[in-house]
């Protein structure tokens, strides 16, 4: 029976890939900025109420991922003026109703809003939200900000759908067309 000969070029390429795996996986494991291997995205941890009684600068040292927060915690942070709410949906959706005081930072167009995301404060919580499950724009925005260097980042996972059950929303009226 004739043996199939693997071309030398493919042998070289395969060896290089195996070498990259042998170096890359341990390097990722020991790197503090390494990515944990897994089948599902790491779920954010729920924040304890006690965390918000501390100055944001203190938590800044300790947080290693965005936290999820509930409606009461959003209220607490808003009342203490310790947070900025970021609406990750489109401008149209934002205009139709958003949490009062929230700033629109659409995740899908994040790089068109560099002026906003570059000027966010480090001494306040950045609370990202969208409609609520299954919408994950708030979570994606939170991770994007977190990876940019903002570490006091929270995700209001229940989102606007939960908020409007008990709270008012703010609407932006479309400017009337100018009459000529």
């Amino acid at each position: 029976m004739k043996k199939t000969k693997i071309p030398k070029v493919l042998k070289q390429a395969l060896f290089l890939i195996i070498l990259a795996m042998a170096l890359g996986l341990p390097a990722n494991w020991i790197n503090p900025k390494g990515i944990p291997l897994g089948f599902t995205r790491p779920t954010a941890v729920s924040a304890a109420d006690s965390l918000f009684t501390l100055p944001v600068g203190d938590q800044h040292q300790r947080l290693d991922k965005p936290l999820t927060i509930n409606t009461d915690q959003v209220h607490t942070l808003q009342n203490a003026e310790k947070a900025i709410l970021l609406d990750a949906r489109s401008l149209t959706e934002y205009r139709s109703g958003h949490i009062p005081g929230a700033v629109n930072l659409p995740y899908e167009e994040i790089f068109e809003h560099e002026d906003i995301y570059n000027s966010l404060p480090y001494d306040k919580w950045l609370i990202c939200y969208c409609e609520g499950p299954p919408c994950d724009l708030g979570e994606l925005l939170a991770w994007e900000l977190f990876n940019m260097g903002y570490t006091a980042v929270a995700i209001y996972t229940d989102g606007l759908n939960e908020w409007i059950k008990t709270q008012d929303v703010e609407r932006v009226e479309t400017e009337p067309a100018h009459e000529n």
Partner: peptide, 28 residues
Amino acid sequence: MAAILPWVEMICGLMLLLGKWVRGTSVL
């Protein structure tokens, strides 16, 4: 991909720099 691909790129770069296994590296 995030753990391995950058090392494939780095190894390819180094192999080209050294001029070794150029054809295999080019394929990658």
